[in-house]
Amino acid sequence: MCGIVGLFLKKDDLRPQLGDMLTDMLITMTDRGPDSAGIAIYGDEAAGLKITVQSDTPDEDFAGLDAALSGALDTEVAMRVASTHAVLTLPLDKEAKALAFLEARGLRVMGSGESMEIYKEVGLPKDVAARFGIRAMGGSHGIGHTRMATESAVTTLGAHPFSTAGDQCLVHNGSLSNHNAMRRKLAKKGVFTKTENDTEVGAAYISSRIAEGASLGEALEGTLKDLDGFFTFVTGTKNGFGVVRDPIACKPAVMAETDDYVAFASEYRAFADLPGIDAARVWEPEPATVYFWER
């Protein structure tokens, strides 16, 4: 049960303001999700791969992490630390080795990709946004989430967005009713989740369908058939932004589109500060219908 915000820019001139706009939207959704908050931001593409990791003891864990990883991979590694998170940049072909190294050191991997960075923590959205300096971040699109935990734990890993493949992320408002069976099904195929969270199963389902060759659109269509319960999903990829609601469509969802952007929110009030909102086309996504925007 939660609040979702999303922003997909159609033009480049708003890119520097992306983090600022998303932060305001996210804070507006505090009432819907006071437990934790998170954001996936698709910023400038790095020359290589970005891995976002988290630690509860960042001072210890991040000190010398870049040098250690660089030594282990025998390549250059850049590191940017923001509070409990660090973004490590390294060559694309070193991903598997780097992930193994980081996990062996007890770091939590939030996500990886050429463009996507994920920041999420327990706490109020305004505090979470401030500790990571999200306002200052630029980018092409981003998805934010405020969580009111239903059944799984209120932890960093339980916060949204969930990323189960490179540059892919998913946020969810609602509650899935067959995620345990789906989790077992995915595990048989070798797709494993890290938490008991229902949304992570949704994310893993979509990633596994894409890995099997489905397009994002087809994978989202598949959620309507294979996932049960109540959901509004918003998903991000390197170039795109998708929305789907379950056929009953009880959980709120509203969208706004102008020449400059496409915006998503659980409630209209998240749009109140967006430029040109008064003239925007505002509508609610239809049930059981996949929406997708790509650059």
């Binding site: 049960m1 009432d31 239903t150 109540f230």
Partner: peptide, 14 residues
Amino acid sequence: CRHPDWTGPDDLEI
């Protein structure tokens, strides 16, 4: 079985 104008705790708050 559900209320006609809200579903879930985030709506219930409102």
